[in-house]
Structure formats: structure tokens, C-alpha cells
Simulated assay, not measured.
Amino acid sequence: MSRRFGDLRQIGIVVRDIEAAMKHWIEVCAVGPWFYTDKLALTEFSYRGTRHDDIHVSIALANSGDVQLELIQQRCTTPSMYRDFLAAGHEGMQHWSSWPVDYDDRLLQAVRSGYVIGQHGDSARGRFVYLQDEGHPGTVIEMAHMTDARRRIFDAIRAAAVDWDGSDPIRRQWPT
């Protein structure tokens, strides 16, 4: 557990081909089922202080135990930390995420201690922020506000992974 951000809950993996990545996790690692959305519905997205309303990111979520895996493929040229990561020649773990209920307090503490907001956004599920201080690839820190809506979705994804028998490996709709 991070005293500053809370429990590590998710590993964010930026990929160039989300379909191939899901296939790998299903066939090689036997992790699933994956809950996929072609375009993450966001009500707001900003990168380095500039708002962008046209970002198109595909997301797939699955759990292995209590840790959630998030596959991310950006499908547009909108500036983002995902594009920066790929442009630097990386592919794979880009961030780890905590899901604090006390999101505002933890974000304020992080900013006061020197972290810089790289990108942030909002959705019907709640707000999220990526802090820019990356010591090496894969160490960006994301916080996602644990709202009731997010909790319901994430609990259902975790429950689907328990005793998953390999059937229906890619579900093209998130739980509600």
C-alpha cells in the first residue's frame, strides 16, 4: 500500500493492438474475462492543462485476484500521456492506479508534495488523474475517484474473474 495514494488496485498497460493484447492475456496467461469498450465515454479530458474533447481510447478491463488489468489503445492523435509513452518507444505497463474514496484530499497532498498533473478527466463513473512524475517507464501514478458507479463496475469485473472457466472471454459491454 502507498501511504500517499492508497492501495495499488490496477496496472495500466498501453498497447498498440488491444485485440492482440486481449488474446495474449486470454490464451497465454488464462486471465479474463475482458470487458471491452471501443471508445471510453469521457465528459472531460485535459492533457498538460489543455482541454481536448476528441480523445478516442479503447479500454479492456479484467481482474487477476484483486488486481485489475487495464489495456489501453489510443486510436487518435489527441495529445496524451499514452501517446507520449508509445512515442518514447515503450509499450506495456504505463501506470499503476489507486482508487481512493478521499480523492480530493490525496490529490491535494500529491500536488503539494511536488507531483504535477499530466492528464485528467471525468466520466459518468467519476474523475481520474495521471500524475506526471515518472521515474522510469511504468511508474506513472493514476488515481481514480472511487464513486458508487465505479465500485459497481469494478466489483462486477472482479466477480466475473472468480472461477472463470474460459467461456465468453471478451465481453463487448461493461457491467452496469
Rank of each mutant, 00 (worst) to 15 (best):
G49C: 09
P137Q: 05
R9Q: 12
Y82K: 04
R150Y: 11
N63I: 03
H136T: 13
R16D: 12
D122S: 15
A149H: 04
V111M: 12
G138N: 04
A87N: 15
H52I: 10
G49R: 11
G92C: 09
V101T: 14
T78V: 15
D66W: 10
D17G: 07
E134P: 01
A30H: 15
I59V: 15
Y115L: 13
D104Y: 05
S97H: 00
R83G: 13
L42W: 05
P79Q: 08
M146L: 15
R112Y: 07
T43G: 14
R106A: 10
R3E: 07
R4V: 07
G32V: 03
G12C: 12
G65K: 09
A161T: 02
S46E: 14
A160W: 10
L42D: 07
G65Y: 11
V101C: 06
Y130S: 08
D148M: 01
T78G: 09
A161P: 00
L40P: 00
G65P: 04
I26D: 06
A159T: 01
V14H: 05
F85R: 04
G65F: 08
T176Y: 02
V15G: 09
L86R: 05
D148L: 02
D66V: 13
C76S: 14
L86V: 05
S167P: 00
G49L: 10
W34E: 04
Q94H: 07
G126W: 08
S113G: 07
R151S: 13
